[in-house]
Design a protein around this nucleic acid. Structure first.
Lengths: 209, 209
DNA sequence: CTAACGTTTGTCCAACCGGTCAAAAATTTG
DNA sequence: CAAATTTTTGACCGGTTGGACAAACGTTAG
């Protein structure tokens, strides 16, 4: 197998970027099967055969998009480090994840779509690379628990809960904005969410004493 | 407008149930556009024209499914009541939601699919019925905060976080099982999740003192 | 200029998909 | 039973979709 990237002209690089950007928009709102090559081509400002000159199959676009996504998507977790104060580390992990939901909602939805449908294309990666990474970070968290820096609990489910609460603001954005209404559903909702999540994860709901 | 339900024969009722059950399976894993009438018909054990005799359009099936879903889906929140101890009420709301994720994962995924795609078919309901219900319950929670029964925080985001963390175990089930691995990803994962969530929502991560 | 190479387009196709229709089969009703 | 009604089926249709292809167009290098 040849792992080297194919040589590409300047035009090819630019057009491929254009297509991927358009495809991200279309796939993330319609899902894979719900999106058509024509839609992507139009969003990218080119004809369908022209698009197929750069990506020979619809699936190739999706696959390329997915590979790129996964790298950046797990970056915040990779940064979770053993140096520094545990509570501060966790707090900034939550903050980073929430910022990703705010700044890259389309990527979040693309990922959610894939998982919802049973992750047919990335299951191996979930069971391999992702599991390894999470296990590794769970061990770090367990160390913090042993040291009494944070409460003893299940590190895996802790990570799940951080994923769930932060990605919720990207994946369920329509619902969040609908429920908050016009006045509170504006740009401030991410700051409100950040404040709430910090409080929840650090102190919970039970009053002191 | 005639709001009365059409008269139906015994066969019609049974077959319609069969179709809805099959459609729930298919729609929840492939999304609306990703599902074909043929798939649903085959899953229901009948021919496509036969299915179309009971539901004249693909959309009618989805709509019927959606209406039923919404009633039961919000039942746990409706039960959240002002009588009884606030912390107990919240704890059992979380437990009920988690049980729904465990027992009705397809319904959860169907709903998630709809929201992910921008809720084209149920946006009015989100902005109307749902918002009203959530606002009402947020007021109840605010009362608990004023009474010092739970910590002061944002009730809307609190509700979001409960939705997010519990539905995560249905919508992202593949990922959860992949990360937990064969040994911990079995049936016990919901009990582990319940324990973790209770601890998180009540006490947070910060050690006492 | 011209040959080689990279890019774009129009046309076409086979498969699929949602839905129709008439006629056959099964069931209910009198 | 027979008539009326409901259910099931096979054949069919028009529109869409992913993708192929050759020809035209543009660009670059000798």
């Amino acid at each position: 197998m040849d792992g080297s990237a194919p040589r590409r002209t300047r035009i090819q690089q630019e057009k491929r970027e254009l297509i991927l950007e358009a495809a991200l928009e279309v796939f993330s709102t319609n899902g894979f099967r719900g999106s058509t090559i024509d839609q992507i081509a139009e969003a990218a400002g080119m004809s369908k055969p022209n698009l197929l000159y750069y990506f020979r199959r619809k699936e190739d676009i999706h696959e390329t998009l997915m590979q790129r996504l996964l790298d950046t998507w797990l970056a915040p977790l990779r940064e979770l480090d053993d140096i520094g104060d545990p509570l501060t580390e966790l707090r900034s992990y939550i903050r980073r994840k929430l910022e990703m939901a705010r700044d890259f909602p389309r990527e979040s939805r693309l990922f959610a779509n894939e998982i919802l449908q049973g992750a047919p294309r990335i299951k191996p990666m979930l069971e391999g690379e992702l599991k390894t990474l999470v296990d590794e970070k769970a061990a770090v968290i367990k160390g913090w628990m042993r040291a009494g820096k944070i409460v003893r609990t299940d590190p895996w489910h802790l990570i799940f809960s951080i994923w769930a609460t932060t990605q919720h603001y990207a994946d369920f954005d329509v619902q969040v904005r609908a429920v908050l209404g016009a006045d509170r559903g504006g740009d401030g909702r991410f700051e409100d969410a950040a404040r709430f999540l910090e409080q929840l994860f650090l102190d919970g709901l039970k009053p002191k004493g």
